[in-house]
Amino acid sequence: MNIGLLVSHYNYWVVIFLMMVGFYILISRGNLIKKVIGLNVFQTSVFMLYITLGKITAGTPPILTEGEVVYSNPLPHVLILTAIVVGIATTSVALALAIRIKEAYGTVEEDEINRIEAGIEAGG
């Protein structure tokens, strides 16, 4: 692995690291709220990946002005705008669900919920 690759891909790798942090929180944590936070981090990091793709070194934001300028790619921006909105939509539904789960089970910890459900199944 040469230095050039390291320099030119460093951004990607940090983003991937962040993604994995979010993903890890999402799948390893038992607290439902924390899971949603993890999901948020995961998604935000994916957004960064896209935006990173769209960047052109020494480019400017894709708002047209006079003169010869290099613009960064607007398409990833559009995609991510959409994705951000989708993300917040998912988050709100997830949180609403968590609230209802708290009301129904008295807890938002996965372990305890599993215990309660196992209890129902054994008792029924």
Binding site: N40, T44, F47, M48, I51, T52, G54, K55, I56, G59, T60, P61, P62, I63, Y71, S72, P76, H77, I80, L81, I84, V85, G87, I88
Partner: peptide
């Protein structure tokens, strides 16, 4: 970061939403 990457619209939105 988004601002640095020239994605000002995205940055705006992410700040408002996130």
């Amino acid at each position: 970061l988004f601002t640095v990457m020239d994605a000002v619209d995205v940055a705006f939105t992410e700040a408002a939403v996130g």
